[in-house]
């Protein structure tokens, strides 16, 4: 791992429904748990489907999780262990 890469936290972006549905709320909890397990190395950002930023992802099925700009899942709550492995892979890049 390069030192430059090590300084770049992995961004977990959640696109949630407006108002947030139950699955979006569950997804927030999963993302926060992943971030808390890796202090300073993961950021969590939440935007709603009302946000203009959503347009770049096309049709949105919530909850949608985007990891460092790449869609990881849409319409389903991510599995925490899988998301942790994906984050680890991103940190190792």
């Amino acid at each position: 791992m390069s030192s430059e890469a090590a300084r770049q936290p992995v961004e977990l972006l959640l696109i949630r429904s407006e108002p947030p549905c139950r699955r979006c709320q569950d997804t927030v909890a999963v993302l926060q748990a992943v971030a808390e397990a890796l202090p300073g190395r993961v950021t969590v950002r939440v935007v709603s489907t009302e946000d203009a930023e959503c347009a770049r992802y096309g049709a949105v099925l919530t909850p949608m999780v985007v990891v460092n700009g790449k869609i990881a899942c849409a319409g389903t709550v991510p599995v925490r262990s899988g998301l942790e492995r994906l984050v680890a892979a991103e940190l190792a890049r």
Binding site: V67, I71, A72, V79, L86
Partner: peptide, 12 residues
């Protein structure tokens, strides 16, 4: 992409 989506959405 399939690998990434599977990782995050598959049952454990």
């Amino acid at each position: 992409t399939v690998e990434r989506v599977r990782l995050v959405t598959s049952p454990e």
